[in-house]
Simulated assay, not measured.
Amino acid sequence: MTTYSTAEPQYVEVNGTRFAYLRFGSTAKTDVPLVFLQHFRGTFDHWDPALIDPIAAVRPLILIDNSGVGKSSGTVPGTYAEWAWNVVAVVKALNIPLIDVLGFSMGGFVAQMTALNAPTVVRKLVLAGTGPSAGEGVEGGDPLATQRLATASNEQEARDAFLTAFYSLTAKKQALGDTWWKRMNAARSNRSDYVGSEGTNAQIGAVIRWGSRDFASEGSYDRLHELKIPVLVANGDNDVLIPTVNSWVIFKKLANADAHLHLFPDVGHGFLNEYADQFSKLINVFLDA
């Protein structure tokens, strides 16, 4: 079976933009694919194979580079609602009637808007290490950690920025982070670079709008009650980028959804890599239920 490492990029053109994606995994049990949406500056070449492959073993996956990201053409949209419409457009262009969606970090913002704006397309939702748009109880993350991620311009700077933002600073946790970094970087050939400075600035602009009540109508906070589907919210217990309390806020705002909350111990934003085995199993159980 094709794995994350061996999956070849495919392309579909929608409204003048050439979107790149990976499509692989087993269809023995279900035809509903799980769509993965990546973090700040990341591409579909920056997932952890230890998380991806156990999920692909039992269900089809689609990993998308949004416009202006990785191997896709175009520019980075200014709002997450626009990012979400890109996801829906790609899915429809591929003639897929129904999807599950997993969004990690910034990808979780996009996942929320995808489910809210295309409720007939999204069957189940997994929100990992993310938060709602601005509202009561929502907390901002460590600005220094975000700045280091935004300004990293070479391999060493990127490694240092991601390891200090995703993992606690103890020797043990940094060693686990180093193991993840090597595993991820060795997973695929012909990998895309992280999003460049122009796209990064556009992503930051979208974050600023997401975090401001002045643009509340573009966000998810006031609309999460609209979701009536199963939602799995997951995070580490000490996330410095998108504080863990924001996962609780999402969970409580999902008043009409079949919502589940799972926090992994002694870990932060990189929980899905550190606990890849457990989290992949949890995702499969949730989606199969």
Results as ranks from 00 to 15, higher is better:
Ala84Ile: 09
Val101Ile: 15
Gly107Thr: 12
Gln147Leu: 15
Gly129Cys: 02
Leu102Ser: 02
Arg123Cys: 08
Met113Tyr: 01
Phe109Arg: 04
Ser105His: 02
Phe109Trp: 08
Glu82Cys: 14
Ala145Tyr: 00
Gly129Trp: 03
Ala134Trp: 02
Thr79Pro: 07
Val91Lys: 04
Val87Phe: 04
Trp83Tyr: 15
Arg123Leu: 11
Ala134Asn: 01
Val101Gly: 11
Glu136Asn: 09
Gly140Asp: 10
Pro97Glu: 12
Pro119Phe: 04
Leu116Thr: 10
Thr130Glu: 07
Leu102Asp: 02
Ala81Tyr: 06
Thr79Ser: 13
Trp83Asn: 15
Phe104Leu: 15
Gly108Thr: 01
Asn95Cys: 11
Glu82Ser: 13
Val138Pro: 10
Leu144Gln: 13
Leu94His: 02
Ala93Leu: 11
Phe104Arg: 05
Glu139Leu: 14
Met113Arg: 10
Leu125Gly: 05
Trp85Asn: 15
Val126Glu: 06
Ala118Glu: 14
Val138Ala: 08
Val87Cys: 09
Lys92Leu: 10
Ile96Gly: 00
Val101Cys: 10
Leu116Pro: 11
Met106Ala: 11
Met113Asn: 12
Arg123Phe: 10
Val110Glu: 13
Gly107Cys: 10
Ile96Lys: 00
Gly131Pro: 00
Glu139Cys: 09
Trp83Gln: 15
Pro119Leu: 08
Ser133Cys: 11
Leu144Gly: 04
Asn86Leu: 14
Ile96Met: 05
Glu136Leu: 13
Val87Tyr: 02
Leu127Thr: 00
Lys124His: 10
Val88Ile: 14
Thr130Arg: 00
Phe104Asn: 09
Glu139Trp: 04
Thr146Gly: 07
Val88Met: 06
Ala128Val: 10
Ala115Phe: 01
Trp83Glu: 15
Ser133Arg: 04
Pro119Met: 09
Leu149His: 01
Ala145Glu: 08
Met106Thr: 14
Phe104Ser: 08
Val121His: 03
Met106Cys: 07
Leu125Cys: 09
Ala111Met: 05
Gly107Asn: 04
Val126Met: 09
Ala150Val: 14
Met106His: 00
Leu144Tyr: 10
Met113Ile: 11
Gly141Trp: 03
Ala150Thr: 13
Glu139Met: 12
Phe104Thr: 14
Asp100Phe: 03
Leu94Trp: 04
Gly140Pro: 04
Asn95Lys: 11
Val122Lys: 02
Met113Glu: 14
Leu94Lys: 06
Asn117Ser: 10
Glu139Ser: 09
Lys92Arg: 14
Gly103Asn: 07
Lys92Glu: 15
Val91Met: 13
Ala89Tyr: 02
Gly135Ile: 10
Ala134Val: 04
Met113Gln: 12
Ala128Ile: 06
Ala128Leu: 10
Val126Asp: 07
Trp85Glu: 15
Val101Asn: 06
Gly103Pro: 07
Thr146Phe: 06
Ala115Tyr: 01
Val87Gln: 04
Ala128Asp: 06
Gly135Trp: 00
